[in-house]
Design a protein around this nucleic acid. Structure first.
Lengths: 224, 224
DNA sequence: AAAGTGAATTATGAATACAAAACAGCAAAA
DNA sequence: TTTTGCTGTTTTGTATTCATAATTCACTTT
């Protein structure tokens, strides 16, 4: 939620730790080694501790008084809950976008859609996801609701570490593409109610392809 | 979003500053006087600065590098946007609550509703709002989605400073009460779709009675 | 009178020091 | 062998100090 202060040491430190978490260099449940990170970043403990407060507020780490900070575990249940909330937020973004979007914006989203479809046909999953994300970002921007965008972004950031199976299930992918085609139609028709419904359901399928990496099943969480 | 660490100085300081903001002792747009607050709280600058990082992440203050912190202004537009997002979240909570709620929980909400109605009949607005809030909290709890509850709570906290006209418009109040009666019916019927729709629209009316105190009209924001 | 410049003062960000809590290892007692 | 207590070390939270940036004030120039 906080704008990242990239010209402050604590802001830079927070960004680096965030990256380390998302790249798996700091594992879920692992203690944050303050001293080592200070040496690694070449800074004193003060901005590093401030960075940890920021990261705690983002839900990336949890602070345990007198015991330091740990990387927040992401359970499959939390992921489900997060997708559910994000679905509601994206549903709202779709309704609002149909109310405020301009012709230029619709055309831009269409272009992004065609680019995404090209990658779909070529089975290029990474660029597919990138264009997919850009479409969703554009819809969110067209909603003209900054609080909505920030709230959604905050949740999205928290699950960024989730990896998706690169051996995607064709069924999922086909459903996702069908959703996107319907989304374009709704934008063209300015059918906010229908777009809202599609977006509310759209994320449900994503859980199927969330790979075990980065996510802890509830069974495993209980046993440790 | 961060769990308040009440047994740490920074946590205590954050809570105090938050209260001061919500009580109008620190005004929107006002500079946070670090030195004075340290003297007032009897602590050093370190935990106070850490507290400010926490508050920035909550959206209560904004941090300006080398210029200190300011209390975040709350514009009417931001309030509208926040209500819109909260409406979507409460809509989801209603849908989920109808899926998971127990008979005991429904009965408890009914009891809260009767207590709220008693205060409505007596025109006692403050206790009315308190029971109103407890009903919404209970529905949110029945949703069994912790991410949803925390996200909603985080937004709710940010607008806590908003004061509502004590000279409430009868029309608004009557509509709110009608909504609540319909909500109880939906819970009894486990009609999640209808409850979700009611809750999505429910907050829209609240904007009408938001008093000028604590909120800056966009015209005023532009002139300063 | 208004604008510009330089010095002094204040505020801010970060580094360092200090005190307390937690942890790890070892020895003694049960 | 297991448990408890003690000691030393490490980590954590906070206070203090230092360096830098921003602001204010006073004086000079236009």
């Amino acid at each position: 939620m906080i704008k990242i202060q990239q010209n402050t040491l604590y802001g830079e430190a927070a960004a680096r730790i965030r990256d380390m978490i998302n790249e798996g260099l700091l594992l879920p449940g692992a203690r944050i080694p303050e001293k080592r990170l200070c040496e690694q970043f070449g800074i004193s403990r003060t901005p590093l501790r401030e960075a940890l407060k920021v990261l705690a507020s983002e839900g990336m780490v949890e602070l345990l008084p007198n015991r330091g900070a740990r990387v927040m575990r992401l359970t499959r249940q939390t992921l489900e809950e997060t997708y559910s909330v994000m679905g509601a937020l994206e549903g709202l973004s779709g309704e609002l976008a149909c109310r405020y979007i301009t012709e230029e914006e619709v055309a831009d989203i269409q272009a992004l859609h065609y680019q995404m479809m090209a990658h779909y046909k070529r089975k290029e999953i990474r660029p597919y996801f990138e264009f997919n994300q850009r479409i969703h970002d554009a819809i969110m921007l067209a909603s003209r609701n900054e609080v909505l965008r920030e709230t959604h972004s905050s949740l999205s950031y928290r699950i960024q570490r989730v990896r998706y199976s690169t051996n995607m299930i064709d069924e999922y992918w086909k459903q996702a593409v069908a959703d996107h085609e319907a989304m374009i139609d709704c934008l063209l028709d300015r059918d906010g109610e229908r777009l809202g419904n599609i977006l509310r359901e759209h994320l449900r399928h994503k859980l199927v392809v969330a790979a075990a990496s980065g996510v802890i099943d509830d069974d495993r969480a209980a046993s440790s």
